[in-house]
């Protein structure tokens, strides 16, 4: 059982975020870390391979500046190796372009299953994994809250508006996981040390057969042309509870004629 996990490396969401003035896209020039959302995919993959008793977990990531910090975190969790696509030519690539690049990178390795997160924390288009599935000619099941493998079939409990559906697909397939599918492990000290020497195969867009114009800003068929401040809510009344908090809420609701 070989599992590929798409892992995005993103600016630390806890740090202040800004837009890059030239493109109005998120400034990703600083240090990047493993997207929390993808830690679930990595953990799920490790558990599936473990249960199968053989195979390995390969990470695939597209990131600027040869960034490997997030990959090292996932390698420290237990993934065997990584493919990193990093190239200045990829700056400004949109969701479809990202999917093309990742699909080409995934093809460089053997896999039975591709895992990704339902959506990334910084881009949250939620379309990249399905685009990858279409480009690879594979079935996909999104919004998994549980994933099991039964022979050559993947079984998923997929979140729905009303509850969940049990959905199956033959392998190979693409599955996107929600947070809560499994509890990601913390890398152990041993894992962190071992990660330092695990192979990271760094490739460029050209290595994957793309030419200038296919990907990057030029290949992206969309542009952000303006940024505006949202209409601010007028400042509310913030009060410290002195035992009268509940009564204040009651009065507020009365004022609105809700009660």
């Amino acid at each position: 059982m070989n599992v590929v996990v798409c892992v995005k490396q993103i600016p630390d969401p806890a740090a202040p975020q800004s837009l890059e003035p030239s493109t109005n896209t998120l400034d990703r020039s600083g240090k990047l870390i493993l997207d929390d959302s993808d830690a679930y995919g990595v953990e799920m993959a490790l558990q599936l391979v473990d249960k199968a008793g053989s195979g390995e977990v390969t990470l695939v990531s597209m990131a600027p500046n040869g960034e490997v910090a997030g990959l090292r975190t996932a390698l420290a969790m237990g993934a065997a190796k990584a493919i990193l696509v990093s190239d200045d030519a990829l700056k400004g690539t949109d969701a479809l372009g990202t999917a093309k690049v990742l699909a080409a990178a995934i093809k460089r390795t053997e896999f039975d299953l591709v895992l990704a997160a339902t959506e990334s924390s910084d881009g949250y288009t939620g379309t990249v994994p399905v685009q990858i599935a279409e480009l690879l000619g594979l079935p996909s099941i999104t919004f998994a809250k549980s994933v099991t493998i039964d022979g050559s079939t993947v079984k998923v409990d997929r979140q729905t508006e009303a509850g969940y559906d049990e959905v199956t697909a033959p392998l190979p397939a693409v599955v996107t996981v929600t947070a809560g599918v499994v509890e990601p492990r913390y890398p152990s000290f041993k894992g962190i040390m071992a990660a330092k020497s695990k192979p990271v195969d760094q490739v460029t867009a050209a290595d994957l057969g793309f030419s200038a114009g296919d990907v990057g800003a030029a290949g992206s068929g969309q542009t952000i042309f303006a940024v505006a401040d949202a209409e601010a809510r007028s400042a509310g009344e913030i009060v410290v509870d002195e035992g009268d908090g509940a009564q204040r809420i009651v009065s507020f609701l009365e004022g609105l004629k809700v009660i």
């Binding site: 000619g137 594979l138 996909s140 099941i141 729905t160 559906d165 049990e166 199956t168 697909a169 033959p170």
Partner: peptide
């Protein structure tokens, strides 16, 4: 849809 269309809903659960 070929292979891309092989994901199948086996059962539905309503909460």
């Amino acid at each position: 849809a070929g292979a891309t269309g092989t994901a199948t809903i086996v059962s539905r659960h309503v909460e």
